[in-house]
């Protein structure tokens, strides 16, 4: 496989990889780094790519696992403190703007969801994958996805309504 073939095969879903990584790692730079790493890995395995049914699903799974590794490494090193500081800072900024910006509230609510639900929302409502594809990417049963998705959407709705009412009264 030459570079042109490779580019045509894997570049169409570059932004999806980036967005998934950003959902995990929050920071833009970390997400860009992960995207670069994923493409390096894909390039190294380029001869094997054609044997996969869906290169995109394979790449998304790789992204998920890579992000989990990054998070694990971050948690076990002293970077944790830096990361927490960073998160807190972000939180405050969000808190300041959330009164006016309901879109930001949604962002916060999604980030508060359990990991699996967060990912399913990302893959379904933002990237619009089918249940089968999500099952492949997350390595879980497609039937379990519908339940988790429904739960996640309802949680967002409930909290959103609660905040809204609170804001009015």
């Amino acid at each position: 496989m030459n570079q042109n073939e490779f580019t045509a095969l894997v570049m169409p879903f570059k932004d999806k990889i980036y967005r998934l990584a950003k959902r995990f790692l929050i920071s833009r730079d970390s997400a860009e780094d992960v995207t670069q790493d994923i493409y390096l890995k894909l390039w190294r395995n380029k001869e094997k790519l054609k044997t996969y049914n869906s290169v995109e699903a394979f790449a998304m799974t790789m992204t998920k696992n890579h992000c989990l590794d990054v998070l694990k490494a971050k948690n076990s090193s002293n970077l944790k403190i830096i990361h927490n500081n960073y998160k807190d800072l972000n939180h405050n900024v969000e808190r300041e703007t959330e009164i006016n910006d309901s879109v930001n509230i949604v962002h916060q609510l999604i980030n508060e969801l359990p990991e699996k639900q967060k990912l399913i929302i990302q893959l379904r409502d933002i990237e619009q994958y089918s249940f089968e594809e999500i099952g492949k990417i997350l390595e879980i049963q497609p039937t379990a996805i519908r339940v988790a998705l429904s739960r996640a959407r309802k949680t967002i709705r409930e909290k959103l309504l609660k905040k809204h009412r609170y804001g009015i009264s």
Binding site: M11, K14, I17, Q36, L40, L42, S102, V103, V106
Partner: peptide, 21 residues
């Protein structure tokens, strides 16, 4: 707000150039 958030996120793109060599 929910759907606006989804479409806003869908529009977000990675700005870096990927180097694969």
């Amino acid at each position: 707000a929910m759907f606006a958030y989804f479409s806003k996120n869908k529009a977000e793109v990675s700005t870096q150039q990927i180097q694969v060599k």
